[in-house]
Design a protein around this nucleic acid. Structure first.
Lengths: 115, 115
DNA sequence: GCAATATTCAACCATCTGGTTGACGGTTTG
DNA sequence: CAAACCGTCAACCAGATGGTTGAATATTGC
């Protein structure tokens, strides 16, 4: 968790990592379960989780031999504030967001439409 | 302007590019003027502007031998919506944003505090 | 204790990124 | 027309990124 904006935005730039965050929105998950829907190796997922953790976007807690991953939405605050300043965006349109998540969830890392 | 989220977030991940966007927030600028406060070469700035344009975050218009760069804040909308969904952030706190811009403007690409 | 499970580490690879320099193509201006 | 200016292009480079595989480290269950 170093330079908030640099690490947060570059963490968010990868579709696999955004898909992981979307999954964690539903509930905390073990690393193996996070990896399950993706075709890439567990080690690759572990790296992605490390990047998300460094950016402060998730936290990881070891209980027994399982590591639980938890979304940390506060880390998005700085980035969100920065962005909103450019567009005077309305507070989020939750309907649009729901539709959006469907496309994100539909196919975790395969690009799809994405607005 | 391909996958909106991928290109937008990765464009925003670079501090030089965020500094450029911040400068363009004030007014449209010619490429040479955009480059002026930075120590890197004009060609490097030209590349950054290309990346910002590909992400749809700016537009470029040639008038005579000068190319004018213009902020296109709409491109941030999708990314902003995506992010707000994770934190249910309040509509932007403009005071925080002002303080934030000061640190961004203080030293264009040198990291500084940044929240 | 041993085997299976959960996760990371280390080495490696191909590709992308951000920077450089020098040459080039338009556009003014003298 | 020639010189100066604006910006991009092309080739190159060092370092980061995202992926792989195989070995290593905990922890659990039989």
């Amino acid at each position: 968790m170093t330079q908030t904006l640099d690490t947060a935005f570059s963490a968010l730039a990868d579709p696999t990592r955004r898909a992981i965050l979307t999954m964690l929105l539903e509930d905390d998950m073990a690393v193996t379960d996070v990896a399950e829907p993706f075709q890439i190796s567990l080690a690759a997922i572990s790296k992605h989780l490390g990047i998300l953790a460094d950016a402060g976007l998730i936290s990881r807690e070891k209980r027994g031999r399982v590591i639980w991953c938890k979304l940390e939405p506060d880390a998005l605050r700085a980035a969100s504030v920065w962005m909103q300043g450019f567009g005077q965006f309305d507070p989020v349109d939750l309907d649009a967001f729901e539709r959006f998540l469907e496309t994100e969830l539909a196919d975790p890392a395969e690009p799809g439409v994405h607005l």
